[in-house]
Design a binder for these strands. Structure first.
Lengths: 210, 210
DNA sequence: GTCTATAATCCGATAGAC
DNA sequence: GTCTATCGGATTATAGAC
């Protein structure tokens, strides 16, 4: 059976969802599949390869959420959908979301394999495209689309990270409201006119004040 | 010797810096201190308590960076210094920075101990204070100081997280420039006037578009 | 391809002598 | 307060029979 590989992968994803990275072991996986541990090594070289495959599945699901945004009819709608779907994925599948950003060391690797890096790169490219087409349409200030999309990406991930770590004292409904309000702030700007006036008077640039 | 506890803690910090969380063990720590493993248990109840103490040291160092910002003479200057010192701490001490945001599960705990939660809470309060005094001075738009400081915190942490994970293809100098530019974008706002015009025409709110 | 059996390590933590 | 010795467990991975 060649689909034994798929069965193992499916059980590996479930095991990761139940136990997290800490509680994931080849013995537990084998028990869950219904075989003994050595049998797994016929299908996957080692534990790290299994975990990398689990990361791949997380990216596959993430991609389904993200590319659904392309159904929007205008650049602004597509950007809005991308942000909404990003939020929905992270809140609906927090363990998979965590897996997107797992450190190589946590997987027992020095560097992430090319397969995963390409997934991550494609995600960055997706955000870049959303930023660029909005900028081309005159909806965003002129500037570097790459950098603007980084700002949006960092803002969204930063909020989600802090919330999922339990560092923000609010429930999910409260977080959703705050996420939306914070996104509006990002687009409107935090500063009051007086801030720029004060800076101009001091003749200094607003340096790294985030 | 009561300072044996301190010696162990100092070596534990070094061991964590060298090996990370994955490679940290009581046996290695004992070897590093120059005693046998059981001796450690006279000074620390178990491995988790040692790691919690290491997190505490990271917060202590972080606090030194952050509270240095209070030397600024105006609210804006203190906010600016806080952001700069936050960046300097994260780039100068990436492993300790990572430790500030370590998940309880990675430490083998269900929840972080009160000691660490208080540290994290104090950090949130610090950012809140910086936001509030700038808002009181009319430098930031009216709103909730707590939420505005969350936006700034999330933006800064999001950028640093992506950079430290190696997901942004740039060197440290490039990142510093981007961090500053992104912070300015955050204060000025991403949107061009046309975006608000388009939204008003559609009669819909700009929802969660970050 | 799966099994049993096992190698070879590592781990956290404890008992009890000194 | 530190030691030796050890418990009891985990892990990845392999050898060889079937």
């Amino acid at each position: 059976m060649s689909d034994m590989r798929d069965r193992i992968l499916a059980r590996a994803c479930d095991l990761y969802l139940e136990e997290g990275l800490q509680g994931f072991s080849m013995r537990k996986l084998a028990r869950s599949v219904g075989v003994t541990a050595p049998a797994l090594y016929r299908h996957y070289e080692n534990k790290e390869r299994v975990l990398v495959a689990v990361v791949g599945e997380a990216y596959k699901l993430f991609g389904q959420f993200l590319y659904r945004s392309l159904a929007g009819h205008t650049p602004l709608e597509r950007l809005h959908l991308a942000a909404t779907n990003y939020l929905e994925f992270a809140l609906g599948h927090p363990r998979q979301y965590e897996m997107l950003y797992v450190s190589p060391a946590a997987l027992g690797l020095d560097r992430l394999p090319q397969e995963v890096e390409e997934h991550a790169c494609a995600t960055g490219q997706f955000w870049h495209d959303r930023g660029r087409e909005c900028m081309d349409a005159g909806l965003l200030r002129e500037g570097s689309p790459e950098e603007v999309s980084m700002t949006m990406w960092a803002h969204a991930h930063g909020l989600l990270f802090l919330y999922l770590r339990g560092l923000l004292e609010m429930d999910e409904a409260g977080f959703r409201r705050m996420f939306e309000a914070s996104s509006i702030r990002l687009f409107e700007g935090l500063a009051a006119p007086r801030l720029f006036k004060e800076l101009a008077e001091r003749g200094e640039a607003l340096a790294s004040a985030g």
